[in-house]
């Protein structure tokens, strides 16, 4: 299959990219890693008139230490994120989840910011950013702004980025002394998650002091399992207690029914997988 015609520009700075996008107007689209966009173009499910390719914007690549947090450049590839020492030291959940995204060749091209801006609730990274209370840094014609991850995902394949805005980076708080796990459930290795669970757990004195849980593919947007988080807080760091708390994982979710799973099955899976993710994150 072959994409329809489009214009193309490859700016080398964020400023250039923002103005190119502004000039392109509504029919312009940002091209990041392209691993989701290229299939859409080839299947002619998308007809942009202009692609603004961010691959040559060097300032968008790499991970920066900002003291209490890391900033991951939007165009940092999955391959780089998985191996990045700062990410592994301070936000290992991101490395764990990114390692499950697609396959090695796709991870060479696909980018952290691209996956988030695509806002696919079946993608693995949106739930992780939601669980970690990350902040999205967007730059547009009106300058830069920060959007909490919980407010970034508006709907299926829709973010709250304004027209003309580009996701330039993601600020992730450092979590010292936490345990992490990403539990991905898919039918074959290549498939999207039927359900995924991103869990971060801080233990103290044999109990769970604090936990964060994000759910993949349990609604039109990634979901924070708040009921589980409060239920698990202060409980014993033992499998039974964690699985008990996990039974609330599906609360308030509206999972889709599709080829890969009906909603009730997804609700059930969310509970089972959340228990497993918590146990793995708590190392019990």
């Amino acid at each position: 299959m072959i994409p329809a015609q489009f214009e193309y520009t490859a700016p080398t700075t964020v400023d250039e990219a923002v103005s190119a996008l502004a000039q392109g107007g509504e029919e312009a689209k940002v091209l990041a890693g392209g691993q989701s966009l290229m299939p859409l173009l080839r299947l002619r499910l998308a007809y942009p008139e202009l692609l603004v390719d961010l691959n040559r914007v060097a300032e968008l690549r790499g991970v920066r230490d900002e003291g209490d947090s890391l900033v991951i450049g939007a165009m940092t590839t999955h391959h780089t994120v998985v191996r990045d020492p700062l990410v592994n030291q301070h936000c290992a959940l991101i490395a764990l989840a990114t390692a499950t995204v697609a396959d090695p060749a796709v991870r060479h091209r696909g980018t952290f910011g691209g996956s988030l801006a695509h806002a696919d609730p079946a993608g693995d990274l949106p739930a992780v950013t939601v669980a970690l209370d990350a902040e999205m840094i967007a730059t547009g014609p009106n300058g830069q702004r920060t959007i909490p991850a919980g407010e970034f995902f508006a709907d299926y394949l829709t973010s709250t980025l304004q027209p003309g805005e580009i996701l330039v980076g993601v600020r992730v708080p450092k979590l010292a002394g936490w345990g992490f796990h990403y539990e991905k459930f898919n039918r074959v290795a290549q498939a999207w998650a039927v359900v995924g669970v991103a869990a971060a757990v801080r233990r103290a004195n044999g109990n769970i002091a604090e936990a964060r849980v994000g759910l993949t593919n349990m609604g039109a947007t990634p979901v924070r399992a708040r009921a589980v988080e409060s239920a698990v807080q202060g409980t014993q760091a033992a499998p039974a207690a964690l699985h008990e708390a996990a039974s609330q994982a599906a609360e308030g979710t509206h999972p889709p029914s599709d080829l890969h799973g009906q909603a009730d099955y997804r609700r059930h899976l969310a509970q089972v997988l959340t228990g497993r993710a918590l146990a793995a994150a708590a190392r019990v």
Binding site: P39, V188, A189
Partner: peptide
């Protein structure tokens, strides 16, 4: 046909 691409028709890969 809703299994019209390799994203929906699950041909197993090496890990499967």
């Amino acid at each position: 046909l809703t299994s019209g691409t390799l994203a929906d028709y699950l041909v197993p890969a090496a890990p499967d």
